[in-house]
Design a protein around this nucleic acid. Structure first.
Length: 678
RNA sequence: GGCGGAGUAGCUCAGUUGGUCAGAGCAUACGGUUCAUACCCGUAGUGUCGCGAGUUCGAGUCUCGCCUCCGCUACCA
């Protein structure tokens, strides 16, 4: 029986356009971890993929007048290419429209149906046609509408959807979390999960009737499986479930699920564990929810022009520095993981990227390499000097760096891991300064000089291995310059700080800086404008951007992780069209009363032209119910109904925020109720 | 409104169970060096450690109050 593989996942992404910096973050972190674990000798199974069963996919395809399948075929290569640009070495790329996944989802569904954890819910409720209001069973006692002013007979509504018995697993999930707190990282987000679950979980509707696109519910072909239920199962599908028992055995459970914070609490830390428990499958070992990236202080959004594709970013950096594009892509990997602790929100800035590039990569690593190589050429004819044994500050520094790095990587603290390497590099640079082998050589202490330089070179060998999960291509470039007999790919973690040296006498090539420093233009610091920050951003880099099927409409871009997470444009302006969506109308208050058990909430029954409505407003601390009756107010008429304290609010009152609470807004002269407000 | 987190050098932040804790990196200034990608090394700073009070021999470090920001959440629709 093979040893269990170290199983790493990213979420499956909702496909639309290209991944941007934010979307790439999760995948890069997962890739670094995969490479790190491989380096440590583990067999790794690294999965990413795409979420394709969302209704949005269908709609986007419709809009283009193509079949969803064709629409997806256009886009998938774009994503794969983006991952290739960022040196993402996934082992499997799952698409949720693949037969293997459809099969798995349906099988999963069937099993839970059999065990009783999926049931067909008569989505039972009462409905008042007059009020267009759904009422719960408990609201209706006598077959009449609970609204006092209505009291008309209500109709029984039953819509059949399937439910997952999520509520049943509430306590079990909490126990699972508390048993081993480091399963959910970071800790402050784990606390949110606990708080969320403790509020109480309700059974989850997991099917949708009448959808055109999605995985059909087995035995009920008129319904499709709720996209989240479908999406999460991808982690099982790719692990071979349910047919390939052997693969599944040595793959599942996942060792780390990576994701952004928006899909951490409800889906990955609540729904998913419950689903697995219901299916009798082991739960993942770790889930980690990282923060969001903004770009130059603004939310990443295509319509703001700052949703830059990582490939474009690499080209920009490459142009600024003169490094090869693949090295630039590595630098982006480095920057993203180095800049902030994993888990926290962060702001991407091109200046920040360049600063990191110069300080950490060019000045520290790059310069250490370069000065070491050129010393060997200058003093020893380009031949590798022998590494002395025995104690050495360099040796100690390497050992400490490797140990710290390993510890930090255990809990995905990439920033700290990289920090440890930076510190060690500085130590080696200092050691070189202190021992000044160029002087030793001048003084005739050739052996001593050789020893110091050999140590320095040995550190480069070690650092190259240690950095390689973060900088896979750059590490190759450096490796090619140190005179190693074996390829970098043959190296292991243990050998990095083993002080094993390089073959003495080996001939080194002429050194080539891997990270050419970015020189600021004369007279000014901080070159280049931030990407997408300026006005020019409205003209995206045409040549570089991939032909996005959906045109350059101002549609919201993909959020950092999907599926189905919303992402709205956050510019300060909305278009007139946006505003036109809001229907404001006048209404006359017929009756008002406090909502029982609340301090702020008032229930208003208003007449809006022909129609009567119930509207809740949080103004009870500023207005007595009596004083409102007969007043004319302005109502947002097309706000989606919202239920609070068992009452459905069918709109919202406009009120100014006064110093002592809300102040209702009213027409300046009398107008009919139901009048449009523009 | 509730719960949680955060407010520390120009910037980003570290600061364990209260007593060299007033720090690091970047940025700045000066000096050293020259093997090196104007790089590296060293030195120097500035800070009322959000505000106010309290406990203590002694508090960024504990208690109470207040202010500001952020996250989650709610009777914000």
């Amino acid at each position: 029986m093979a040893e269990k593989r170290f199983y790493i996942t990213t979420p499956i992404y909702y496909v639309n356009g290209t991944p941007h910096v934010g979307s790439a973050y999760t995948t890069i972190a997962a890739d670094v971890t995969a490479r790190f674990e491989r380096l440590r000798g583990r067999e790794v199974f690294f999965l990413t993929g795409t979420d394709e069963n969302a209704t949005k996919v269908y709609e986007a395809a419709q809009e283009q007048g193509v079949a969803p399948e064709a629409y997806l075929e256009q886009l998938i290569p774009v994503w794969k290419e983006a991952w290739r640009d960022l040196h993402i070495g996934y082992d499997d790329f799952i698409r949720t429209t693949e037969p293997r996944h459809v099969e798995a989802v349906q099988e999963f569904f069937r099993r839970l149906q059999e065990s009783g954890d999926i049931y067909l819910g008569q989505y039972e409720g009462w409905y008042c046609v007059a009020c267009e209001t759904f009422w719960r069973e408990s609201d209706v006692t006598d077959g009449l509408c609970p609204n006092d002013w209505c009291r008309r007979p209500v109709r029984k509504m039953t819509e059949e959807t399937y439910f997952f018995r999520l509520s049943k697993y509430q306590d079990a999930i909490l126990r699972w979390i508390e048993a081993k707190p480091d399963r959910l990282l970071p800790d402050f987000r784990r606390n949110e999960v606990v708080a969320f679950i403790k509020q109480g979980l309700r059974d989850q509707s997991i099917s949708r009737p009448g959808e055109e696109w999605g995985i059909p519910v087995p035995g009920a072909e008129n319904q499709v499986v709720y996209v989240w239920f479908d999406a999460l199962i991808n982690y099982l599908t790719a692990a071979g479930w349910p047919n390939d028992a052997e693969t599944f055995q040595n793959t599942w459970p996942a060792d780390i699920h990576f994701m952004a914070k928006d899909i951490f609490v409800r889906f990955h830390c609540t729904l998913w564990p419950a689903m697995l428990m219901a299916a009798g499958l082991p739960l993942p070992c770790r889930l980690i929810g990282h923060g969001f990236w903004t770009a130059e202080g603004r939310k990443i959004s295509k319509s703001l022009g700052n949703a830059i594709a990582p490939g474009d970013l690499a080209r920009m950096l490459s142009d600024a520095s003169g490094c090869e594009p693949d090295v630039a892509a590595d630098a982006i990997r480095y920057y993203l993981l180095r800049e902030v602790p994993f888990g926290q929100d962060a702001d991407f800035s091109f200046d920040g990227l360049k600063l990191r590039f110069n300080t950490d990569l060019a000045n520290d690593i790059g310069n250490l390499c370069n000065r070491t190589f050129s010393l060997i050429h200058r003093l020893f004819g380009g031949k590798v000097p022998a590494l002395p044994g025995g104690d050495s500050p360099v040796r100690d520094a390497l050992k400490r760096a490797a140990e710290t790095m390993a510890q930090e990587m255990e809990e995905q603290r990439y920033s700290n891991a990289l920090q440890a390497l930076s510190d060690a590099i500085k130590e080696v640079n200092k050691h070189l300064n202190d021992r000044a082998p160029w002087n030793l050589h001048k003084e005739g202490k050739t052996d001593e000089a050789a020893g110091v330089i050999a140590e320095s070179l040995e550190s480069v060998r070690a650092f190259t291995i240690l950095y390689s999960p973060f900088l896979p291509v750059a590490a190759e470039r450096i490796w090619a310059q140190i005179g190693a007999a074996e390829p970098l790919s043959a190296q292991t973690w243990d050998r990095a700080a083993a002080w094993e040296g390089l073959p003495a006498g080996a001939e080194l090539p002429q050194p080539t800086p891997v990270f050419p420093r970015i020189e600021a233009p004369k007279g000014q610091k901080a070159a280049g404008k931030a990407p997408g920050a300026g006005k020019d951003a409205s003209k995206p880099n045409k040549k570089a951007s991939v032909p996005a099927p959906s045109e350059e409409s101002g549609k919201p871009t993909v959020s950092q992780t999907e599926p189905s997470a919303e992402s709205k444009d956050e510019s300060n302006f909305i278009s007139i069209d946006d505003f036109a969506k809001v229907q404001l109308r006048t209404a006359r208050v017929l009756a008002a009363e406090r909502v029982e058990g609340t301090t702020k909430l008032l229930r208003l029954d208003v007449e809006m032209g022909e129609e009567d409505r119930t509207v809740l407003a949080g103004i009870a601390e500023s207005y007595a119910p009596e004083e409102l009756v007969g007043k004319t107010v302005i109502v947002v008429a097309n706000l989606e109904p919202k239920k609070m304290r068992g009452v459905v609010s069918q709109g919202m009152l406009l009120a100014a925020s006064g110093p002592d609470g809300p102040v209702l807004v009213a027409p300046e002269k009398a107008v009919d109720s139901g009048s449009e407000v523009r």
